[in-house]
Every structure is written in structure tokens, then in C-alpha cells.
Design a protein around this nucleic acid. Structure first.
Lengths: 124, 124
DNA sequence: GTTATTATTGCAACAATGTTGCATTAGTTG
DNA sequence: CAACTAATGCAACATTGTTGCAATAATAAC
């Protein structure tokens, strides 16, 4: 199954690149002014995740956010950094700080999902 | 608005106490074998949160989990510890380790939601 | 450039989680 | 016991996300 280049995909990828933050499906739909179907946006985003282009983080607002992968290459994805969500401007940022947590004896971690919400410098 | 003691509330509180872990609405519904309405369970859980009896944590499985408050008293709620969710047995535990993260200059945090998912000692 | 192949899209429908309105039930107080 | 009203159950709705399927459109082959 070889990938094809389509307007929707390049548009969504450009949005992720230019925004510099993590975006949710509804944010992308808004920015695209409804030119692309809801379902297509979801499918494109899921494809990006499969291809290792983005990573998905589930926020405490009940939505998934998608952010471009920068640190991780190939199939060794470690999205173990904190994310910040501003309650005013809704912007979601990847923080540089890595999550460090020690588990009880015998536990094995496969995924980390760490959020801080509050107000960013511009919205305080 | 004074609270009243009802069978549903005491049953749900007992479940939370005896389980020793965080429970979601559907877990509670299952354990109560459908004797209590879905909506009632949600309302009871929300009331518990309002009253400071429980805290809510939103997991990356898209559900809210509710756990009894132990460490925090009065209106000074700081649920800033990590949570672990076992992908096999579905159990959700509060870990003792506090979340420590330094935000960019000028940012203010109001809430923390930190998850580790994987396999617990019994399910490895 | 034309054709064949099939990945991608759009639409409808569905599933899961969670909330709200409203009439009924049932704790609590006097 | 009676009055008050918090709590419940049901229906309906909102939001987020997925799946099936026919139509569309990239890509490859000629």
C-alpha cells in the first residue's frame, strides 16, 4: 500500500508545520474552513501517526492532539515529554522536559501521556 | 443544597473504597449489574468531585476515571501524581510519585494529568 | 496521452462517552 | 404524617471518533 500525495494531506501537514503546535481535528477543520471532510482529516492524521510523521496525545479536554515528530527517528518513538494546554487560547505545546517516573516493581511502561494545563505567557 | 444519602451513592462509594483503584463509569455500571442508571452514576461521580471526595483523571483511552482523595484536605486539591493504567487488566492506580515539571517563563499551571500505561506486575 | 490500478475521499451511519431537561421518586426536616 | 426538594430514571442531545461503500483521483504502465 503505497502512499499518494493529495491536497488534503499536504494542507494538513503544512498547517502542523506552520502552527508549530499540536492541533486537534476540529482546529484543523476550522483552519481549512470546511473544505475537507471531518473523516478525511481523521484519516490523514491517523496515517501520519502510522508513518511516524506525527504523534498523538490525548488531552484532558477529551480530544486527541497531533504534533509533528522532531526528536524521534524511524520506529523508535518516545513521546515522553510533557504537553501544555492553554485554557484561554487553546494552544497546545510540546514542552522540552522529559517525563521521568519510576514504576512499582515488575511494572512495564509502554506509553506516557503527560499534560499540564493552565495559562500561557500571553494569556495570563 | 444539602446532600442526601441514597443507595446509589453509598454503593458507588463502597465500590471505590473496596477496589482501591480508580474506576470509570462503565466499570461501576458493570459492577452494579445495571441496577443504577448510567446518568445517575455520572451525576454521583461528579457530585463526589464537587465535594472533594474524589478526583477525576482523564485517561488516554478517552474515559474519565475517578479515584478517592487521600492526600488532600479541604479545598486545597493537588492531584499531581502519576497514574498507571494496565492495558491487560484495565486497572488504574494512583502512583505515589508526584509530577514535577518546570514551565516556560510566565506560564501558570492549574491542572496536571499524567498517565503511564503498560502492564502491571500481575499481567506482564 | 491514454488506460488500468487502487489509494484516497466524501457521505451516511454508527459507537462510545458524557451532559441536560423533565417528570417521578424518595430522603430529610418539622 | 406532611412539606420540601435532592436524587433518580428516561429520553434526547452533543461531541469525538470510527467504519462501510461508492465515487474520485493519484500513480504506474503502456
Amino acid at each position: 500500500m503505497k502512499r499518494r500525495t493529495t491536497p488534503a494531506q499536504t494542507a494538513i501537514l503544512d498547517l502542523l508545520k506552520s502552527s508549530g503546535s499540536a492541533l486537534s481535528q476540529d482546529m484543523i477543520e476550522q483552519k481549512m474552513k470546511g473544505e475537507t471532510d471531518r473523516v478525511t482529516i481523521y484519516r490523514v492524521l491517523n496515517r501520519f501517526c502510522e508513518d511516524g510523521l506525527t504523534h498523538r496525545i490525548v488531552s484532558d479536554d477529551g480530544k486527541s492532539y497531533f504534533a509533528l515528530c522532531h526528536g524521534c527517528q524511524g520506529n523508535h518513538h518516545t513521546h515522553d515529554h510533557f504537553h501544555f494546554r492553554c485554557l484561554t487560547c487553546q494552544k497546545v505545546e510540546c514542552l522540552s522536559e522529559k517525563v521521568q517516573v519510576s514504576l512499582p516493581q515488575g511494572y512495564r511502561a509502554t506509553n506516557v501521556n503527560a499534560w499540564v494545563s493552565g495559562y500561557c505567557a500571553g494569556c495570563i
